[in-house]
Structure formats: structure tokens, C-alpha cells
């Protein structure tokens, strides 16, 4: 009963927050665009999306859902980076708002079909990997990285819904090699039921996000994409196993 009440309250506040925050942030960015270059406007637009996501995932469900973010890199660089994350639940894309960088996400087809949020994702330059051939994806991703925009990717392609981790798709690792861009493994634990796969019902819990040190291009430049994706998968898998044990 408590769970239902929590969800009713959360989704009500979430809708209310979205109705207010989205137009306000859009207006703010629109005002910026009058005096700023397109590039700077896009920067602020993407940051605005991050702020929206951060409030939605950190503030609204608090204190029933608590998020702990840990950055293992003592001194963060300026980027751009390719953030590679494990994917357990639909909250993962929102959790990435914790990353203090200008980012876009590589998404499947369905997020682009979400009302309002899908349109904003498209405007922000999110890449729908299944709607374009690899060459086009690679070209756009490299262009974004060269502009200084970091890319967040969930290479499993779909949510696992539990503590397992699927095989990684290699597209983004080919991009990393080509663009000479460092890869940052990001490990997410504790949100496999927030919400469970196939449900919107959020359950109380503690979500941990560990951002591991960047893997520089010099370290993987000679690796084949297949080897690289499995290397990153192993790094994430080992860290997530430790995080799950500490739960």
C-alpha cells in the first residue's frame, strides 16, 4: 500500500514538475539563443536536460530512493569522453544526469517516441543507433566528440532487468578508436527494481553510481574493437559485482 502511495505521489509530482520545468528551461535556453552562438546554445540546452534529469531522479523520489555518486578519478578532465554504462533499468538514462559534462546519449528507437522527452532528445542531438547505418552513426558521433560533447552509451542495448549483464555491442568502441577518445566505465548498481523491467512501479532503494578512471586512447589504440568492448565489459562487471556485494 505504501509502495502504491509512493508511486502515485512520485508520478504526480513528476508530471507537475515536468509541466513547469520543461517550458521554463526551454524558455531560458530560447532566451540564451538570442545572444549566444548555436554551439553555446546547444551546450546550455544539454545542461538544461541534465538539470531536469537530476531533479527528477535525485530530488523527487528522495528519501525513498537515494542516489550515491562516486567519482574514482581524483581530478576530472574536461572531456569529451565516451561514458560506457551497464544497463539494468529505465532510470539509467536519468541517472546519467549526475555526470558533470555536456553529454548526449546513444538511444534505442523507443526513447525518441516518448511524448515531449523524445522531441527534446532529438533536438539535443541524441543518437538513435538503430535508425542509422553504422557509418552515419560513426560520423555523427565523431563530429559531436570533436565539438567537445561527451557521449553516454549503454552498449548492452537493452535493460537486463536484473543483476546480469548482457554482451556489449561494439559500435561505440569503434568510434572511440577512430576519434581517439577516452572511455570512462560507469557502473550502476541497486536500480534493477527501480522500476522493474516491464513496470513503472518504482521501489524504494539505494542506487550507486561509480564513475571509474578514464581509459585513455593510448591504452586501447592497438586493440581490436571486439577485444576493447570485452575489456571494458570486464572492468564494469568486476566493479558492479563488488558494488552488488556491498549492497
Amino acid at each position: 500500500m505504501k509502495l502504491i502511495f509512493f508511486n502515485i505521489v512520485f508520478y504526480f509530482v513528476f508530471c507537475l514538475y515536468s509541466v513547469v520545468a520543461i517550458p521554463v528551461l526551454t524558455l531560458l535556453v530560447a532566451c540564451f539563443s538570442l545572444v549566444m552562438s548555436h554551439r553555446n546554445t546547444m551546450k546550455w540546452f544539454r545542461r538544461a536536460i541534465s538539470w531536469y534529469g537530476m531533479v527528477a531522479i535525485k530530488v523527487l523520489p528522495f528519501p525513498l530512493i537515494r542516489i550515491y555518486y562516486k567519482d574514482y578519478e581524483k581530478k576530472s578532465g574536461y572531456g569529451p569522453y565516451i561514458f560506457v554504462c551497464n544497463h539494468r533499468a529505465a532510470t539509467d538514462p536519468f541517472l546519467m544526469a549526475c555526470l558533470p559534462y555536456e553529454c548526449i546519449q546513444v538511444v534505442n528507437i523507443w526513447p525518441f517516441r516518448l511524448p515531449v522527452l523524445g522531441i527534446y532528445a532529438r533536438w539535443a542531438g541524441y543518437l538513435s543507433i538503430n535508425e542509422m547505418p553504422f557509418k552515419q552513426f560513426s560520423k555523427q558521433a565523431v563530429k559531436l566528440l570533436r565539438q567537445g560533447v561527451s557521449i553516454i552509451v549503454f552498449p548492452e542495448g537493452t535493460r537486463s532487468g536484473d543483476k546480469s549483464m548482457g554482451q556489449f555491442h561494439g559500435s561505440i568502441f569503434r568510434v572511440a578508436i577512430e576519434a581517439k577518445c577516452p572511455i570512462v566505465p560507469v557502473c550502476i548498481s541497486g536500480n534493477e527494481n527501480i522500476p522493474p523491467r516491464g513496470s513503472f512501479l518504482l521501489r524504494p532503494g539505494k542506487i550507486k553510481i561509480h564513475k571509474l578512471p578514464a581509459i585513455k586512447w593510448e591504452r586501447f589504440k592497438d586493440l581490436k574493437p571486439f577485444k576493447l568492448k570485452n575489456m571494458v565489459r570486464n572492468i564494469i562487471s568486476e566493479e558492479v559485482a563488488v558494488m552488488d556485494r556491498k549492497e
Partner: peptide
């Protein structure tokens, strides 16, 4: 040679996508 997969893992029943981890580009 191409994927640096260990010999022990190369069993005939292995699914090349789910078990060995190849994707469409691979």
C-alpha cells in the same frame, strides 16, 4: 586471430552472439 577469443571457449555449441559476444559489425 580476429577476436582474440581463447581456444577453450571455442566449443561447437557456443552461440556466437550470446556466448562469444559477437555483434553485427563483428
Amino acid at each position: 586471430e580476429s577476436f582474440e577469443i581463447e581456444t577453450e571457449r571455442l566449443q561447437p555449441k557456443m552461440n556466437i552472439f550470446e556466448d562469444l559476444g559477437l555483434d553485427s559489425l563483428d
